[in-house]
Amino acid sequence: MKMNNPDLESSVAAGFTDAGPAKISANKVSVYYGEKKAIDEVSIDIHTRYVTAFIGPSGCGKSTFLRTLNRMNDTIPSARVDGEILLDGQDIYRSKMDVVQLRARVGMVFQKPNPFPKSIYDNIAYGPKIHGIAQSKSELDEIVEQSLRRAGLWEEVKDRLTDSGTALSGGQQQRLCIARAIAVDPEVILMDEPCSALDPIATARIEELIDELRGRYAIVIVTHSMQQAARVSQRTAFFHLGNLVEYGRTSDIFTNPRKERTKDYITGRYG
């Protein structure tokens, strides 16, 4: 994949020699809101083997770019996306793309937990029902249990599946939302600051969960916390003013950044 910035190209290449083929490849992606350019020609590869963290100061474009990966920006009338985003080599912005199916393959977990006003069971069962994944009640039961187990929530809720999902604690609600995303058997999970509304104990549980899910799904997490990025990710992308400044191994980004802007952000000179 040809990249715009030769320094960035070598940085990515150095960090991904053992990664295998990219699950998602973005090539010169720009995002506009009306006339305002929010993202400027970002090129990046996302791999299943790693958790990838997007970091940068508020308003830098990291969440905006995350939303391009499953076309969530389509919901904003003034938004326009230029460039190419490939999922397993297929352009997700092509006219024939089924966006509903795309969002089943590329799930999203939002900043604020948003369980449906339904029972815990129905929160998980909703996706498999509408996508025709389960052919019987027993299959649906199995999907619900497996999804809740993978999200580390089964033991806490197995005796109260008929209770409302909104009755759970904040951390449990976020794990419920992760279980809901998992239930449709996605290939990619996007997480937009999933711990920002949670207490430290709930945050630690979500971070443990991300580590447990690593390798099963390609996971991308936007985080305002550099400490969290260092804990949960193996690859980190630093965004600033709509640009992807640097992308590589998390350990390299935090201990030996190649760009001065990255170093200034990591050391707290701005942000």
Results as ranks from 00 to 15, higher is better:
166 T>N: 15
95 S>G: 07
203 T>K: 01
39 I>Y: 10
177 C>F: 02
109 V>G: 03
103 R>N: 01
6 P>F: 05
123 N>R: 06
106 V>T: 09
183 A>P: 00
10 S>M: 11
55 I>A: 09
152 G>I: 06
208 E>H: 13
211 D>N: 13
122 D>W: 07
198 L>H: 08
136 S>Q: 14
81 V>C: 03
156 E>W: 09
268 G>K: 03
27 N>S: 10
224 H>C: 04
127 G>W: 04
181 A>Y: 00
200 P>N: 05
222 V>A: 00
112 K>Q: 15
194 P>N: 07
166 T>G: 06
86 L>T: 08
244 L>R: 10
113 P>N: 06
63 S>R: 02
253 I>W: 12
63 S>Q: 00
80 R>F: 10
139 E>W: 01
10 S>G: 08
225 S>E: 10
15 G>A: 13
60 C>L: 07
269 R>V: 12
229 A>F: 07
198 L>E: 11
21 P>V: 04
183 A>S: 11
119 S>V: 02
156 E>M: 09
211 D>M: 08
143 I>T: 10
44 I>A: 09
250 T>H: 06
121 Y>H: 13
99 V>M: 04
205 R>I: 09
156 E>L: 09
34 G>Q: 10
200 P>G: 06
260 E>W: 00
5 N>V: 01
96 K>I: 07
158 K>H: 15
2 K>Y: 09
233 S>G: 00
255 T>D: 14
76 I>P: 09
61 G>M: 09
95 S>F: 05
236 T>M: 10
76 I>E: 13
186 P>Q: 14
159 D>Q: 10
198 L>V: 08
75 T>G: 00
98 D>E: 14
145 E>M: 15
